[in-house]
Design a protein around this nucleic acid. Structure first.
Length: 440
RNA sequence: CGGGGCGUAGCGCAGUCUGGUAGCGCACCUGCCUUGGGCGCAGGGGGUCGCGAGUUCGAAUCCCGCCGCCCCGACCA
């Protein structure tokens, strides 16, 4: 993409309403635009990141055996009346009437609907287990939306729902999602620590939150430094191996880790040696629940078992805040100059800077490399605007692409360009004809 | 929902107390110059001052009502 033809409204000053880094940087880099309290338009740069995160989440859900569906944003109130949550959910649920005066709502979550879909789609225990998920916009009318996309009212969420015959099978479904979350967050370039969580109003038997460590997190967290020492990046697992999956879950859950609501200082001190006691703040980016029959019972979600008798299914639900992750990743990965994108979610892989637009030699060298990178499928953002070098460096650091290729008269004399790593700041001179090979 | 604050050009702000018909920086447009860390010179465009109703000869400014947004707290996938 040529920057001269892109839509990336970069702001030079910090917008006054943005207090925290991710919100400030997302607005400054033109990733999003606020439309109302807690509601954002996603502009090209932000949308690319959102889609990359979504795709990684999707791939890991699929790998763990979940099946993708898509449910509508608007739901009928009837389903919610049946589960008893229509009145319980309160003002956070956006209620709407259609022209026939029927009660609708903009879905804040989908337990009711998916349970109904599942029930009507299967008849026998032989059709289980199943795990269905979708990645869809939700709306929760938050009392106080804030922090940009981190606590918006409209947000993109992956929610999965498992259905099993027995409690043990349901536990395995829960464990599979647990492990898939570890893999997902590792691929996203962040460390999200699983912590035992309150089941809250959603209820249920077992629950874990996954929190990204960041100073601006909304929850205080206390955990065993040994969790940091585990290698998260290379998790290999056979999801059908019940024991292996369970072992991995217990490896991560045996260490002390708790949010401030669940924190027990004396237990913390008893279980974790002093030098390993870590505390800080975290952003919740995932939350998994095992329900048992809490939802399936009132909704009459039953199947016929081998003995001909009805069995109430065991269910769980598993959420990842996709749009929140955009902010969460920035919170965990930025410096004073701007964003530092992990390679897996960066909007572009390489930023190509032409330091002397209009100079025949510089233009030709940049064009050649730009076209070659594009031909190789390398995502490259070419800053071909006629602006002074300083402005280009500042902008490229701000948007935080992992690599910068800097081409100007000084290096061209010797047939070289500079390759800069945004994260480490390391610079390296590379021969022009070697550049493409570095990234392709 | 309690407390506090803000709304004037795309962004950041001054002007409001003390009423006189709107200004600064950046950005933008034209031309020249320049090009290795937000460059320089000259010229130029852009605002129903959040909305409505009042007071007044005259309202960004005073009065009344409303709307929107932000921050702290309570709450929260």
């Amino acid at each position: 993409m040529r920057l001269s033809q892109y839509f990336m409204p970069v702001l030079r000053d910090d917008p006054k309403e943005a207090e925290i880094a991710s919100h400030r940087l997302m607005l400054r880099t033109g990733m999003v635009r606020q439309e109302a309290a807690g509601s954002y338009s996603w502009l090209p740069m932000g949308f690319r990141v959102l889609k990359k995160i979504e795709q990684i989440v999707r791939e890991e859900q699929n790998r763990a055996g979940a099946l993708e569906v898509l449910m509508p944003t608007l739901q009928s109130a009837d389903l919610w009346r049946k589960s008893g949550r229509y009145d319980d959910y309160g003002k956070e649920m956006l209620r709407i009437k259609d022209r026939q005066d029927r009660d609708l709502l903009y879905g804040p979550t989908n337990e009711e609907m998916i349970t109904d879909i599942f029930r009507s789609g299967i008849q026998s225990y032989k059709d289980m287990p199943r795990n269905l998920y979708h990645i869809q916009w939700k709306f929760r009318d938050e009392v106080r939306p804030r922090f940009g996309v981190m606590r918006g009212r409209e947000f993109l969420m992956k929610d999965a729902y498992s259905f099993d015959v027995t409690r043990e099978a349901g536990q395995h479904a829960y464990n599979k999602m647990f492990v898939s979350y570890l893999k997902t967050f590792a691929r996203l370039g962040i460390k999200a620590v699983p912590m035992r969580a309150d089941t809250g109003p959603i209820g249920g038997d077992d629950s874990h939150e996954f929190l990204v460590l960041a100073d601006t997190g909304e929850s205080g967290v206390f955990f065993d430094g040994a969790l940091h020492d585990l290698d998260w990046s290379t998790i290999e697992i056979d999801y059908d191996n019940v024991e292996a999956v369970a072992n991995m879950v217990s490896e991560y859950t045996s260490k002390y880790a708790a949010t401030d609501e669940k924190h027990d200082q004396s237990e913390f001190e008893k279980r974790v040696p002093e030098g390993k006691r870590l505390s800080g703040r975290g952003i919740e980016v995932g939350h998994i629940f095992f329900f048992g029959d809490k939802y399936s019972k009132p909704l009459g979600c039953e199947v016929q078992g081998p003995d001909g008798k009805k069995i109430t299914v065991q269910s769980g639900s598993y959420g990842i805040g996709v749009s929140r992750l955009v902010g969460g990743i920035i919170e965990a990965s930025h410096d004073k100059d701007g964003i530092i994108w992990p390679e897996s979610v960066a909007p572009f892989h390489v930023g190509l800077i032409n330091l002397k637009v209009g100079d025949a030699e510089a233009d030709a060298a940049c064009e050649k490399i730009y076209k070659a990178l594009e031909a190789k499928g390398v995502e490259v953002l070419y800053d071909d605007r006629n602006q002074p070098g300083g402005a280009k460096f500042a902008a490229m650091d701000l948007i935080g692409l992992p690599w910068q290729v800097i081409i100007g008269p000084r290096g061209l004399k010797d047939g070289i360009a500079e390759v800069k790593n945004r994260k480490t700041g390391a610079r390296e001179n590379v021969a022009l004809d070697q550049i493409v090979g570095r990234f392709a």
